[in-house]
């Protein structure tokens, strides 16, 4: 399974996106704002997910804005920074 697909499945389950399927999310779709419409609590949930599943600790929550741009951007960041 590609990391992109893994992330889509995790995001749908973790953020309870009941009406959204993996196929509905394009790798370049914006996760916040007009894209998936995630909110600030979702951002915090993604920060916890990075730590728990990939061993990445974001010490500055503002970094999330750039990292959570899209599935592709997030996957690239994880590939570079993961410790597990």
């Amino acid at each position: 399974m590609s990391l992109q697909l893994e992330l889509k499945e995790k995001i749908i389950e973790l953020l309870n996106l009941e009406d959204i399927a993996v196929e509905d999310i394009d790798n370049s779709d914006a996760l916040f704002g007009d894209g998936l419409g995630l909110d600030s609590i979702d951002a915090l949930e993604l920060i916890v997910m990075l730590d728990k599943d990939y061993g990445i600790k974001l010490t500055n929550p503002n970094d999330g804005k750039a990292i959570f741009q899209s599935i592709d951007v997030l996957a690239n960041y994880i590939k570079t920074h993961r410790t597990k």
Partner: peptide
Amino acid sequence: YYPSPSVFV
């Protein structure tokens, strides 16, 4: 120790 923000709120 991974408290969920979306549960905590």
